[in-house]
Design a protein around this nucleic acid. Structure first.
Lengths: 155, 155
DNA sequence: CCTGAAAGCCTTCGAAG
DNA sequence: CTTCGAAGGCTTTCAGG
């Protein structure tokens, strides 16, 4: 993970479809070298995937909400996570410090679907309660932040 | 936005670097046709970008936290959002219904950096208070959910 | 939406730094 | 261990239909 790797990561973070040839030009290497580096970054799970960013409204998922989950006394945390994972509307899931053990970001198309989703979540084994807040608008999401220049090597 | 568009979107959502030729094979069109469709999806802002997904720990951002922002009585909401946008650690920003007007997802490398970040946020004009919760782990994030098959055309 | 041809790119080598 | 250069095979691109 040297400076060139960091530049490659940075470039792919904002333009994941950039060709190896173009990446090579920008970092001053040849295309095979860049390809080798990217393959290594993928192997080391520095790069974990490539995603097209979609306008949620365009695919019928105009409502974004956050749902905090309070687990019941005897619940096994990982079982709760496994159950939540089955629910496709849950785009992100964080295990949190605090009263609410999980925080979920969910997306649905209508309020009726949100109601149904929250009902389903509240009925999962191990779930003691939910707290739902609705996003009136998304100002921005998943913005790539500048990579820290001096970081101890991972892996 | 027909079925083929939806399949293209779906494919690019999980494998954004897939070539047009490969996409074409999978949806049963030729490569120029697929390219034309993708260009149109980009123009219509159905596809808003392509991102490499990075393991945050690998780039020195191992700590994820959520920060709720309570705005002061006279504050102009959009000014608060503009001020928050200047802060690079804020990866996502939602304008929320509820007591906390904004919810931010932030990433930093150390607790000291988190402390500093929260301090900076709390001092922004229009910010009356903050509530920070730390993610102990990220179970998953940005998981693409199945696109709704029957959605009225956007745009 | 397709075909066809030219340009460019990706991939895989072997070889060199 | 990483990079380079060159070759073939694909992919992209841009006409024109």
């Amino acid at each position: 993970m040297d400076d060139i790797d960091r530049r490659i990561v940075q470039l792919l973070r904002s333009q994941a479809r950039m060709s190896y040839a173009e990446l090579a030009r920008r970092v001053g290497l040849t295309s095979p070298s860049v390809q080798e580096r990217v393959a290594k970054l993928e192997r080391n799970e520095v790069i974990t995937g490539y995603r097209a960013e979609i306008n949620p409204e365009a695919i019928g998922l105009g409502i974004t909400a956050l749902v905090g989950i309070v687990t019941t006394a005897g619940a096994e945390y990982s079982d709760v996570a496994d159950a939540i994972q089955e629910i496709s509307e849950v785009e992100s899931c964080y295990f949190m410090a605090g009263q609410e053990s999980y925080l979920l970001k969910v997306r649905v198309g209508t309020m009726a679907q949100l109601e149904h989703l929250v009902t389903r979540l509240s009925r999962l084994p191990g779930v003691g309660g939910t707290r739902t807040t609705i996003a009136l608008s998304t100002k921005w999401e998943g913005r790539p932040q500048p990579t820290d220049p001096d970081v101890p090597d991972p892996v």
